[in-house]
Amino acid sequence: MTHRLKPNGRRVVPLLIFALLALVPAATAIGADAFVLSLVTRIMIFGLAAMALDLLLGYGAMISFGHAAYVGIGAYSVGILSSSGIDDVFVQIAVAFAASGLFALVTGAISLRTKGAYFIMITLAFGQMLFFLASSLAAFGGDDGMTLPSRSLVFGAPILKNTVVLYYAAFICLLGFYALCRAIVASRFGRVLRGIRENLVRMEAIGFAPYPYKLAAYVIAGMIASVAGVLLANQAEFVSPAYAGWQRSAELIFMVVLGGVGSLHGAIIGAALFVLLAEYLSRLTEYWPMIFGPLLILVVIFARGGIAGLLKAWR
């Protein structure tokens, strides 16, 4: 009966998260610092990317160490298209979907032939390959990255220039993809994926070939993360190879683990904690990674199951 109790908690927490996120612009309207708005926008963008990664980590037991590459593909779709005069956000998202889907299909097809540590390292290496490709695009800023001429247009209107509109655009994306991921996880496809995570041999024995399921999940997760890249490019009005760097991939993994692997909304909580903590510490000292690094180690060693695990233990 314990699993009957879980869905309640799983419904309340996400509801709270999205209600809170929906109300943030109201708080800034009554007088909170406008900076909060851009900070929470960043939280939602990284939350979206981390949630996509959680689909792989938490439900497919695939430790992808190159997920930032897909954020990079999304960001560069905006950067490259807008510098050649194509500003429509829907065209940009379509290109980001196509490019990230293709990259995920090709690299996933090779990576998923390997197991365990090999998978971690090969996804890392493919991520770095993309990073070097972005660095060598001299026409689009090379190593230094490039500033966008302007934010994307929605039906020809520059409404994303307004920070509140951009905020809600990110909010709608996060909510929409959260609903999609929930539906995927609850579907037959999702159950097969979880079955593969729990016991590969048994799933094979009852007649499921794991490879196509894993590959489909890998492609979906890549495409969702590319939307985060499209949003990130618009928010920062800047694209850079650093978006796709391996440190970013590690940070995304940290967000997922911090919030609790395999809950989807946990990734959003993890992203919030990560962004807020990094923001706070970086104001404290220039050497903030010296605090952040050991903190990360302590979380891994002592807080198994992330924040969700801690709360469970505390109860």
Partner: peptide
């Protein structure tokens, strides 16, 4: 997963 994360923390610390 835990090993990757914790050792990434070591990298962050030592680079600084």
């Amino acid at each position: 997963l835990d090993q990757v994360l914790a050792t990434f923390g070591v990298i962050l610390f030592l680079n600084q």
